[in-house]
Design a protein around this nucleic acid. Structure first.
Lengths: 346, 346
DNA sequence: GCAATTCTGATATACGTCTATCATTTTGAA
DNA sequence: TTCAAAATGATAGACGTATATCAGAATTGC
């Protein structure tokens, strides 16, 4: 169980420490024979680099950059807060946040290009499902900088990993929750999406429809509202829908702009069952007030932590930590996380 | 942002490295004046010990002991697997598991007493809500060994922290889920508990009743089944209940022994809505088969990780990591975690 | 066989901490 | 004032790794 050192490896391989170092860190040319001996010894001893010692010797600091969509979106504000908090309490890690105009391929390209050649140990980017970013991403990664997509994926060939939820599963989950709340009765269900060109919205909608169609066929759906994540637009459209559909039993909001949705509901007497995404200030209080009923959250803390752990593993060239997939989490008013920072235990 | 070292502290305080070390590590007597100077310097520089360097210098290994109830309980089997996995991939951490007869105060006392005087850096114990363990716990902690209660709490004065879910919230959550699945209609709901002398079962039941009484008054409940977490007992009692209550709309199982519950349901044609606790093999497949509908899980991986992080922080005398409270998590058949180990990304 | 090249070995320094030792200074009590 | 006791300073070695340098060995080409 006692872990072996590179000196142990060198001794077993019958070479000097310097040579073993040259092999494992690919420092300079080494004869094939020596390389083989060293690699065998590594395998035999199960040697793994002591990252703590290595970082100490180098006074290593990690510099990771997050590219996040700008704008007032409460969810991304929350993400920003989480990143800042992690930046605070990690001693050897610097986290930078760069705002990029939302849904803007060209702006994202420009920012990615800016990163090229800078001393960066990893990039986490809220992706766009477009091919146009390929050159910049390839350039970055060819320099050894890992790129992970966060929350919204990039084309899979152009990033090292995706950290985010399965949005089809999220949509299915919403459908099941709302469907079961009908207890077998018929119902009418309004779906509000943001922008169906966005991959995550499309996926959620697809998952949602799968389950409603298959398992709750007595639920009908009026035309989908495409609200562009815009509160004002959504408030208007939702008010009209509530008037047009006095038999409305449920609402599923796929994207952002839920301020408008909640306003529209509050202004009416009808109280449909509501499911929406992301636990933020607004959705939390609406949940407590009984205006909405289910919040499907993607646990942004876990996503940020997973992204950090993964980028570190990739840049350290160490086996990545077990990827526990981020699952959509369901909040009711009864299992909300406590709001204020808790005091330390004891 | 560049973190300062103990040498920096010593220099600023105008004392030698040795003295600074004596102060921060309480190594030997130091004059009050010197101590004050050093502490001021620590505060001024925001010095925090570099745990990685410290551990390296000492070849520090952590030895943590888990005391877990024995028996066939699938949930604790899962916990055991998680602990073993963590033991594997932590290079400087040794995790030991000791089985203790379940719900047995005397056996637990004996095991705790055994630990006294051993070189242990922390104990995580699935607690019992009894006062009788006080002497052993106090003895352990007086030697500087932190004790955290896991999943089931100890009296709060005798442990450093509790890692587990809020069971009242868990019960409330179950009630809300089942209540909403009635869509305002009347219903009849069978509760199955294990042992109401156990704190967690009492708490879940209390939370459950709170919500049903307050928000779903049209749901009635036959007498509670006390199944002692025993499959056979539960299968029998549940079969009787299903026969006696042909209008049964829902079931909430608070504890273990769900094998019997599921058998009883499968044997009948009635298909009530079922909520139960802990995602294990059995509950997972029953969920997929549509025999049960909601699983409330306490994310044992997170609990184990939190316990480890906390014990490390306590023994290192370092500010404990932000405690993210473990929340009851809801699984439907649509948001289940993938079963097999994923292959690493890329 | 000789020179030029490539590979290897030996060793030193640094990272920040802990531990230990020993000499020196300061303190306090007689 | 004297002397033991207490407090402090100075320093060295260890942990495992990265990096650098330089001398010596092995290999290659001609």
């Amino acid at each position: 169980m006692v872990s072996s050192t590179l000196s142990d490896v060198a001794r077993l391989a019958g070479v000097s420490y310097a040579t073993a170092d040259r092999v494992v860190n690919q420092r300079s040319r080494v004869s094939e024979k020596a390389a083989r001996k060293v690699n065998d010894a590594v395998a035999q001893l199960g040697y793994v680099r002591n990252v703590a010692a290595a970082n100490l010797s180098q006074r290593r600091t990690y510099r990771f950059v997050f590219l996040l969509p700008d704008g007032p979106n409460a969810f991304f504000q929350k993400i920003r807060g989480i990143i800042s908090a992690r930046d605070q309490d990690q001693r050897n890690t610097m986290l930078e946040q760069i705002d990029v105009p939302a849904f803007n391929e060209k702006a994202l390209r420009t920012q990615l290009a800016n990163l090229y050649g800078q001393k960066i140990d990893g990039v986490a980017v809220v992706g766009l499902d477009v091919q146009g970013l390929a050159p910049e991403l390839t350039a970055l990664r060819s320099l050894g900088t890992p790129v992970v997509s966060l929350i919204s994926d990039l084309p899979r060939d152009h990033r090292n990993a995706y950290i985010g939820i399965d949005n089809i599963a999220a949509g299915r989950t919403a459908a099941r929750l709302l469907g079961m709340a009908h207890a077998g009765q018929a119902g009418r269900l309004q779906v509000v999406a943001g922008d169906l060109t966005a991959r995550d919205h499309r996926d959620r909608l697809a998952g949602f429809r799968q389950v409603i169609t298959a398992d709750f066929p007595t639920i009908t759906m009026p035309d989908l509202i495409e609200g562009r994540d815009d509160s004002v637009l959504i408030a208007k459209a939702m008010t009209i829908s509530l008037a047009d559909n006095p038999d409305l039993t449920a609402i599923y909001s796929i994207g952002a702009g839920n301020n408008g949705l909640i306003q529209a509901i509050r202004a009416q007497s009808l109280r449909p069952i509501v499911a929406l995404h992301e636990l933020v200030c607004l959705s939390r209080s609406a949940l407590c007030d009984g205006l909405i009923h289910y919040v499907i959250d993607q646990r942004p803390e876990e996503e940020v932590d997973a992204a950090l752990a993964l980028m570190r593993a990739l840049i350290d060239n160490v086996p990545p930590p077990p990827i526990k997939p981020i699952l959509p989490t369901i909040y009711l008013r009864d299992n909300l996380p406590p709001l204020p920072e808790q005091e330390p235990p004891q």
